[in-house]
Each structure stands twice: as structure tokens, then as C-alpha cells.
Design a protein around this nucleic acid. Sequence first.
DNA 1: TCTGGGGTCCTAGGACCC
DNA 2: TCTGGGGTCCTAGGACCC
Length: 435
Amino acid sequence: MDTDSAIAIVDCNNFYASCERVVNPELQNRPVVVLSHNDGIIVSRSNEVKALGVPNASPFFQHREILERHNTAVISCNHALYYEFSHRVMDVLNDDCGANKIEMYSIDEAFIDVGVPDKLPMLGRHIKNAVFEKTQIPVSVGIARTKTLAKLANHIAKVSTKADGVLDLYDSPYTDLALQKTHVGSIWGIGPRSALKLRDVGINTAYELKTAEPKQIREHLNLFPARTVRELNGVKCLGMEVTERSNKSISHTRTFGHAVSDFDEIRNAIFYFTTRALEKMRWNNLAVKSVTVFMHTDRFRPVPHKYYGKHTYKSVYYSDVTSEIYTWIAESLENAFRPGFQYRKAGVILSDLVSPDEISTRLFEQFDFERRHSLSKIIDEVNYRYGRDMVRFAALEARGDWQGKSQHRGNDSYHMVGRDTLGQGKKFSKSMRFL
DNA sequence: TCTGGGGTCCTAGGACCC
DNA sequence: TCTGGGGTCCTAGGACCC
């Protein structure tokens, strides 16, 4: 790792809300919120909504009134749309920003190793302008010696009118001042729990954390915050992760529209989740050895009986064959399910993933395995081309009472765009995370 | 009435072995 | 009453991120 090179982080402002504004310009002059699945919580806010004091990731119903009073556009999330814009933004960064290396960190953020150019602020300004010109998505750019400091620079660039979206702290005399003005909980990697513990030992600002004894930090927190302290001091501890890394787990989980206690209904949901997760797994060319099924009762409101059920089935070999993995899931489901509870949420997690070339040959079953493997692939293909679950196994009941509803769906046409562009996303598939 | 979903990494502690 | 110590592997849960 080049210890001198500067790291920029480019972060899209209010990404989901910004995407919605690009495709619907009438939203430009209105406050905008984007809601999660089932319209449960707010996952993206325009600046106007932030100014109203509505926090991110908070339940929509708690803020409905104030949002309506301010004529806020309320929109159900449309992931296909955000994927599409994510690719567009990443393409600009790839082609047009003097990058040595790019790490796509999330759907709306990328770290860029920009080497050691003469005029970093000018480069930052160029990146911001280029992305906006070509995608209409506003971004902020933070530049520094380490990822943690770059994140801080970005944070300030977003809120400071003087910075106007670009801040360079690479060799800046203002770095310590910026750290003094920043609450320790705003530092990347320091969450609410750690911030409380640090407060107990008299550390409140990022600057106090920077100048703390690493040993003292290790005594109170764990390894990661200790690394954060060194990063605040300009020592690179977190490198660029440029190479594609395959997922360590793939999951599909949902909160039900209402409480469900019937086994068959839970079973339908679980097999539906499994099917979605397996599609994603095969799309990423992976096979699985461990599957987990879980279900639990309502976390937020009192129920007669609480229950958190979970079971992991560990196979002795890997597979990517739907019919086979269904039998593992069925066993986990039987183990995790207890009758008599009001379930509110359930899910499936695939872990212990590996690419199929590494699957050891199963001599005695080889023929049958190959045959079923091809069948799974064919079903994926048909569903991809003609729509979800056009072809499916008898175990899968696609629709059920358990499904919730999104009330604020807008134009659905972008769902097709998402499908068409799935392939182009491959090179960025490494650490895709979703809000 | 209405409280998300998809990830990663780290650690403490139990089980087991010699 | 006495009742090792060191190593490894596994797992559940915590913390964090977007």
C-alpha cells in the first residue's frame, strides 16, 4: 500500500431521494423521503427533510404528520432504479476521475486512490462536477491520507456551506480543528455503544480520540476502534479493497404484513425467501453448505409469548441445486418452528459459500447432480426472461397473506431497466450493500 | 394501524483434547 | 479437601456500517 497516496471518498448525497428526483423533476422543489419495504421506515431524506429534524432509519408513522404538513413527496423504494444510477456514477468515476484504484464501498460510495497529484481540491471539484454533469446525482468528495480521515472530510464537505461539497484534509493545517469540532460518535467505525464507553473515560471529541493512548482504547473497546485511532493520526490501516471478493453470506428476510402463526404460511414464506436467495447465489456463481432458517415474534410490541427461533443445517458437501437445498431448508424449518406463536418476521441465510469449481466431485451421485444442477440454471434463466416464478418448484407458493404492501409505488417501468443492466453490475458486485 | 434488510468483523466462552 | 494448563475449534451475540 502506498503510504503517501491520497484517498478520496465520493459519496452520493441523499442517494435514493436524489435518484427519484432525477426521474421525476417535479420533486426538485419538494421535500422527499424514500421508504423501506412495506413502507416501514425512512431510508433516504432530501435536505429539506433533514432540516425538519426527521432522523434517518426512523419509523415513517412517527413523522407522517410533519412530513405531510410540509408537502413531502413520500416514495416506496425502487432498488432497480438505484442500481441503475449506482452503475452510472461508478462508470463516471472509473472513466473520468484520474483514479489509480477504485473500491466500490457501497451502492452510493466509492473510495478512490488518487495518487499524489498537485492540486487535490481541484481534482475533488472535478470529480463532483463530472458526476453531476453525466448523471445528475449530486455527490460530496472528501480527501485525506486515510479512509477514516477521508470519511470525516466527506462528512464536513456535506454540511459546510464553505466547503460546498469538497474538502481536502490531505496536508491540511485544519485537520485537528476539524477533529476538535467533531463528536466522536460521528467517526466512521465508532458507533453509539462505543461512543458511550468513550464518554465514560472522558473522550468526547474526535480530537480527544486521536490523541488518546491506543493501549487505553484497547482496554475499553476492541480491535477495530484501536485501528481507528491510528487512522485518525494519518497512519493507513485500512487498505483499498480493489479485487472482487465474493459474499460470505447471502440472505433474504422479511417482516410480514401481519402476524402469522400457521405453519403452512410460514413454510410458504421460507421457501419463497430461499428461492430468492438461491437465485442471487447462482447469479454470483456460488454454492452453499450451511443454511439457516429463523423466525421470531414482534420485537416492538408485547405479545403473549416471545420466541426467537433459529436453526442451521450443515451439509457435508456444497450444492447449488434448488431441490436439494429445499430439503436442507425443510429440516431447519421443522427445527426452528414452534407452534402457538405469532410470528412477525422470518428469513433464510445461506452461509459457507464457495464457487462451484471448488466443489468436490461426488462420484456416486455425479450424474444426478449434474442433471439437477442444469435444471436449476434453466429455471433461473426462464424466470429471468419471462418474469419471477414463471417456472417454479411445487414447494413454492409465490403469493401469500404474509406479504406486506408498499403504498407509495410510483412508476414501475424502471424494474425492467434493473433487469437489463444486471450484467453490467458484475464488476462492482464485490461488496454491494443495500440500505 | 404503522418500527427494514443485507452485510462484515470481532470476542467471549463452551466443548474438547492431550 | 484436593480437583493443571495450554491449545484449538466452534458458536452465539455484540457492534458496526450503509
